[in-house]
Design a protein around this nucleic acid. Structure first.
Length: 263
DNA sequence: ATGGTAGCCTTGCTA
């Protein structure tokens, strides 16, 4: 059994005590982090080694930054999404852990929609889809985990009308997300919970957490070979309630051992 | 009520 989780921590420096607490109580085998907001050299790699985790880090000063923490060291590490050698934004890291490959994704937010940020988001999603297609051709188990900055349907938003024109909910963002999904992925969370109003992010402002007014934008997308093995998934809301919380909370799934027989 | 919060190494930008 391999427990894989994703958590946008909004600064690893500030969130280190909470990440430590969550690792110790939830014991994921692999934890994908987003918005670490630091250079790789400033990432607390040694502290995580002390907790029993290896780290693959793609850092950037001030903004973005992704990492994968893992009980076993990963190999075949990829530190950028292919397709744009000029892209300086640290938003993708991928590594292989035995028969399971995992990527930590921080998809661009895309707001404001009228700015260059929105076409950048959509182009990034096109690149992600191309890379995902290449990964699917391997016919192996993998998980694309992260902050997608897309709420797939109105059920994933506390106020769908108010958010309709936002880059997280716009038609183009949702179409791109569905095109990715329709390559053959499974949203791990939705296999186990079909209810509306299940959120992974609550804005810091206006008491959104206390009112449970959030969005579900953090996802674990499973390749068919991973989906065949998934045994559980969920959103752990507890860390959002802690002091000095991130505005996101962890989403996790459990991938069982490969089946010995053909289905 | 055009606000509100959080983090960065900042005095605005990003979310």
């Amino acid at each position: 059994m391999t427990k894989v989780a994703t958590w946008n921590v909004n600064s690893i420096k500030v969130r280190m005590p909470l990440v430590t607490a969550w690792l110790e109580e939830s014991k994921p085998d692999i934890l994908c982090l987003q918005e670490i907001k630091c250079l790789a050299e400033d990432f607390p790699t040694l502290e995580f080694r002390g907790l029993g985790y290896h780290a693959a880090v793609v850092g950037q000063r001030t903004y973005n930054g992704v990492a994968i923490l893992s009980r076993e060291p990963g190999d075949a590490v990829i530190t950028a999404l292919p397709g744009n050698g000029e892209d300086p934004q640290a938003r993708y890291v991928e590594a292989r852990f035995g028969d399971l490959t995992v990527a930590s994704i921080y998809l661009p937010n895309g707001n404001p929609v009228a700015s260059e940020k929105y076409p950048y988001k959509l182009a990034w999603m096109t690149r992600l889809r191309a890379h995902a297609k290449a990964l699917l051709a391997r016919e192996t188990a993998f998980v694309l985990a992260g902050d997608y900055n897309v709420a797939p349907t109105d059920d994933d938003v506390y106020d769908p009308v108010g958010w309709r024109e936002d880059a997280l909910c716009r038609l183009e963002s949702r179409s791109q997300y569905r095109a990715l999904l329709h390559l053959g992925f499974t949203d791990a969370f939705r296999l186990f919970d079909a209810a509306p109003h299940r959120y992974s992010f609550w804005d810091y402002q206006a008491g959104r957490w206390n009112r449970d007014e959030g969005l579900r934008i953090d996802h674990l997308l499973l390749s068919p070979q991973a989906a065949d093995r998934v045994e559980a998934a969920g959103i752990d809301k507890t860390p959002r309630s802690w002091e000095k919380a991130s505005d996101h909370t962890p989403v996790w799934c459990e991938i069982g051992a490969p089946r010995g027989v053909k289905l």
